[in-house]
Simulated scan of single mutants.
Amino acid sequence: MLRLTLCMTLVLTLTACAGGDRGLRDLRSSSGGPDEFRVQPSGPLTLPSDLSVLPTPTPGGTNIADPMPNADAVAVLGGNPNALVAAGVPTRDGALITAASRNGVDPAIRQTLAAEDEAFRTRQSRFGLFRARDSYFQAYARQALDAYAELQRFRNAGVATPSAPPQ
């Protein structure tokens, strides 16, 4: 009995140490090997019957032999894969784009926001030196909404709300 208790304690201790909930926030590979999810097999090269249908080569353009998994998935699900090709702003979104860009557009907004976010998370970490590997949720904990409290607030205000899973 003592032996069984010791084995169970050892197993529980080892499983507790091996944990760590990185979740979907940290997708980096911890091994030095190849990433099997980045391998995309390409189809065989084929020569079209009419060479006039070949697109003109453009720097940075796509190749007709390149794999397009998103377009393939859209086609399999019955959608139009050509809808994924960016052909400018759709007319239905023109008013939205005009309103959003009324004060100008910063071409480096992504880099600016990434730098500001990194600075904010550094300030929120303890001493700014010993940051955890993924401090996103810890840094933004005070700004997070309680979904159930918000749901109750909207229901109390008379707003029609969908059902929610139990807490």
Rank of each mutant, 00 (worst) to 15 (best):
R3G: 06
G128E: 00
A157M: 04
A100F: 10
Q124C: 11
R22L: 12
T98W: 05
S42G: 10
D50A: 01
T98I: 05
S52Y: 04
R28H: 06
Q138L: 13
D72P: 00
S31P: 03
N103Q: 09
N103W: 10
G43E: 15
P166N: 02
L14E: 02
I64D: 03
R110I: 15
Y148G: 01
D35P: 05
A139G: 02
A83Y: 08
R131F: 01
P166V: 03
P81R: 00
I64F: 13
A65C: 07
A164K: 03
T62G: 13
R110A: 15
A149W: 00
G61C: 00
A119L: 06
T62K: 11
D106Q: 09
F137G: 10
T98S: 13
P90N: 03
P90C: 06
R25Q: 08
S29F: 07
A86T: 10
A86N: 14
V159A: 01
N156E: 05
P44L: 12
P57W: 09
G61S: 01
C7Q: 08
A144H: 04
E150K: 07
F130S: 02
G19P: 03
T9S: 15
L12A: 15
A87K: 14
F137Q: 14
Y140C: 06
L151H: 14
R123W: 07
L129D: 00
V85C: 05
A115N: 10
A71D: 00
P55E: 02
D134N: 15
L84K: 02
A132P: 04
D106L: 13
S125D: 00
L45Q: 08
T62P: 07
L27Q: 15
R123G: 05
L151A: 09
G32D: 13
F130L: 07
E36T: 12
E150L: 15
P67C: 02
G128W: 00
V159K: 05
G79R: 01
R110K: 11
T122Q: 07
N103V: 07
R153Y: 00
F154C: 05
R155D: 00
L47H: 06
Q124F: 02
S163Q: 09
A18I: 08
P166Y: 02
T46W: 10
R133N: 07
M68T: 09
L151I: 03
L151V: 02
S101I: 03
A99H: 10
P165S: 04
V53D: 02
R133K: 12
T62E: 15
G88C: 08
L12I: 12
S52T: 12
A164S: 12
F137W: 09
A87Q: 15
S49W: 05
A87E: 14
D50I: 01
L6N: 11
T58G: 04
A75S: 06
L6P: 04
V53F: 04
N156Y: 03
